[in-house]
Design a protein around this nucleic acid. Structure first.
Lengths: 246, 246
DNA sequence: AACGAACTTTGATTTGAATCAAACGGGACT
DNA sequence: AGTCCCGTTTGATTCAAATCAAAGTTCGTT
């Protein structure tokens, strides 16, 4: 119920040190960041930022998963981003939040008050450069997702989502070019639906169909085994290996 | 048939000087860019870059319109970006093109060979900073579009597209808070369909429906008049004024 | 062990957009 | 003026996913 107190961890020991916005920093730059950072934790289900709110901090996800969503007045909602450890939250140079950010698991953020961070960024090219790189990657991911949303069938959408989750897991747990993979879905059926522009019923049906057809196996609702990743890529409508080895 | 020869225009006289990637440059930085830039023109319909190709240049659209599209093997295509004057093409730090870029009107690009541009960018924070800003804007636009693709009806999609075009035109031709607006559609019905994740028949039907309902008037196929922008925003499912005054 | 809440699956039916199919309009060229 | 081509409209039909409606699971709590 209460937000756990987080001790101040040295950047050198940080699990996202080499992937986050600070990845390119030299040790002196890291010290400057270290001086202004603070940790904050959120419980599963808790909102982190609400669209339209004043944002007085930016930061990186250290552990846990959060979603970025947009909502229409009548309640239709679309997920527009899935934030994983090392992903950056907030936009330097803007005051109001444009999206809802919600922790879907217990989550820890490494935060910086916005103004000091902007000041630091202004004379630390390594930070600005890394942020540009990360933003370009996110833009690519968003465009990939536009193809999924605009042109893929429900079954292909599910397969695409599984592909993305598997690909990410593969990058965290490199195990060579395996054919079989097992991982956990970090999202409820409803969250998957919001990601894919579907209803939760359709998500459920298509997951069942992929299971019936032997593309995936399930243990419980969340643990997924893909016996043949190549087959999954085909189902996703991606070309051959989907580039997940890169 | 032949690519027109373009004379070398001074950056100071450039129509996109204050909006493009060079917007924040001082005069000495501008000179450095001026030294390595060259112009290139394309005719309507001509491809500029093909997905997977080696990209040996980056650049800005000076005039004309281009589309960024992604295609699946079976031919389904989704537009993932609409490039207008001042928009940047190419990604520093990547060799292969990820998308197809096609000129939909006659178009002029201000190009830089990639390597010299990257070198210049490395010690010109004003360029990197502006590129970050532009990329963040594009990411916002892409996320806005994900909501359109994932959750809006065909009618709302058309209204959303008209809203975007109108909003852009308003920023080029500021005329205060007018209610009535007239502009040209820069896209064919098919291109609109590829943008919206619809078929061209559905686009045609919904445009006709909006016309029948008095939301828009048409002169020819391309010229659109919106008698009441507020009404259009409502049809798009956006809240109130859609923020087009900002 | 029983209860309840949240999440998930499955079934029946409806519906919005896709598909299939023609016809229309306007400009470029002969 | 006539023909061809491209983009567009309109109509008839089909189909994939949404909606409406019930049950089934799982897990935490009493």
């Amino acid at each position: 119920m209460n937000a756990p107190t987080i001790s101040h961890i040295s950047c050198a020991d940080c699990p996202i040190r080499h992937r986050a916005v600070c990845a390119r920093c030299e040790s002196d730059e890291l010290e400057a960041l270290d001086a202004i950072k603070y940790y904050r934790s959120y419980e599963a289900g808790q909102p982190i930022i609400w669209s339209g709110d004043m944002m007085n901090f930016v930061g990186s996800v250290v552990s846990g998963i959060a979603t970025l969503t947009q909502t229409m007045e009548d309640g239709r909602t679309q997920m527009v981003g899935l934030l994983l450890p090392s992903d950056f939250v907030g936009r330097p140079g803007r005051d109001g939040a444009a999206y809802n950010v919600v922790a879907t698991t217990d989550l820890v953020m490494c935060c910086f008050r916005k103004k000091p961070f902007e000041d630091l960024m202004a004379n630390t090219p390594h930070i600005a450069h890394r942020l540009l790189e990360m933003t370009l990657d996110e833009l690519d991911a968003a465009r990939e997702w536009m193809l999924v949303l605009g042109r893929k069938t429900a079954r292909e959408k599910i397969a695409s989502l599984l592909t993305i989750i598997a690909r990410r897991d593969a990058s965290l747990t490199p195990q060579g070019a395996v054919n079989e993979m097992t991982f956990d879905l970090p999202l409820t059926r409803e969250a998957m639906a919001d990601y894919l522009g579907l209803t939760l019923e359709t998500v459920s049906r298509q997951v069942s169909a992929l299971k019936k057809d032997g593309v995936i196996r399930l243990e419980g609702k969340r643990r997924v085994t893909v016996p043949d990743m190549g087959r999954l890529f085909e189902e996703a409508g991606d070309d051959s290996d989907g580039g997940y080895m890169s």
